[in-house]
Simulated assay, not measured.
Amino acid sequence: MELRHLRYFVAVAEELSFRKASQRLHVSRPALSKQIKDLEDEIAVKLLDRDTVSVSLTKAGEIFLEDAQKLLSDAESAIERANEAQSGHRGKLRIGSVGIIATDFLPKTLKIFHQKYPGVEVEFVEMLPAEQLHALALGKIDIGFAYGNEVQNMPSLRSLCVIHSIFGVAVSRQHPLAERKEVTLKDLRWETLFCLGGDGKSSHREAICQIYTAEGTKPTKHRKIEGFDSMVTLIAADQGISLLPHVLDLANQDIVIVPLVSNHSNLDFHMWAVWQRNSASHHVKHFVQLLEERVLVSSNVA
């Protein structure tokens, strides 16, 4: 039994006329009659009582009509949803979460994305930035975020710079350095320096090491902190400091970021949206397009 059989039966059952049903379906009456007969033979149930002048439904035909109409409706909905998914208007978009650093651009982008593509469910996957490139390769997320510039040299990925900022020194508002207009690495030599990330690879730790190495020095005391929220809490409690980009707004956490002065270090901070180069997903393309528009607006404002 094919959907065609159901469509033919439903047309005859609703019209109660082979002539009107054939006109509605644009098929000949003999062909329509044969299809209905084939359907009844296949399911071994008589669906219609018919003679030379009239057509009526049997009791079994009435029940079959309800189910056939529902099946055809479900089939049409399935086709519609498939087309919407193919065009990027339905489905799921999985994005790697990066927390507070994305508050300048991500919420506004998501709002516009939802307005344009309400049928697409956005899911945030909690993971550290260092894990997101691997997650992209495994297909666990569709869009991730990465720090540094190494993603530009990865042929399997495409990238868009969503944040360009400068590293400064994050200290609690009560810290003696908080009122300074600027500081140097020498001013930090007795401080406990927090680096984001555990024992695995950490782009934050690598960036800090590059800054210190360029100055020909290294921190006297440093600690690895697993999560960003934990690090912010420790800084606010005056347990240590860290190097963080100025783009972060941590004023409500009682933290200020003091400008860092260096004659040798590259203090630039970049964050990139990254996705698979061979991704055919319209969801990704639509979201990246909105990110590009957001970045363009931000750069024009700046």
Rank of each mutant, 00 (worst) to 15 (best):
Ile112Cys: 07
Ser230Lys: 10
Arg4His: 13
Leu157Tyr: 03
Val183Asn: 03
Phe287Pro: 00
Thr217Leu: 11
Val274Asn: 03
Leu290Glu: 05
Ser262Leu: 07
Asp51Ser: 12
Leu133Tyr: 05
Lys37Glu: 12
Pro176Gln: 03
Ala13Pro: 02
Ser242Met: 09
Lys70Pro: 01
Ser156Met: 10
Lys140Asp: 12
Gly88Asp: 10
Ile100Gly: 15
Ile95Thr: 02
Asn149Lys: 12
Cys161Ser: 02
Phe167His: 00
Ser28Gln: 13
Ser202Leu: 07
Val274Lys: 01
Gln152Phe: 02
Trp275Leu: 04
Gly216Ser: 08
Gln86Tyr: 13
Thr220Leu: 14
Ala207Phe: 05
Asn278Gly: 06
Val171Asn: 02
Ser298Arg: 04
Ser202Thr: 10
Lys285Phe: 04
Leu48Cys: 06
Met154Thr: 04
Val45Ala: 10
Ile112Met: 12
Ser202Phe: 07
Leu65Gly: 04
Ala75Ile: 06
Ser159Thr: 07
Lys92Arg: 14
Asp254Pro: 11
Val45Asn: 11
Lys37Gln: 14
Gln69His: 08
Gly99Gln: 04
Ser28Leu: 06
Met154Tyr: 03
Asn266Gly: 08
Asn252Val: 11
Asn266His: 11
Gln253His: 13
His134Gln: 11
Gly227Ala: 15
Leu267Phe: 15
His175Val: 00
Glu15Ala: 15
Asp199Phe: 13
Ala273Asp: 02
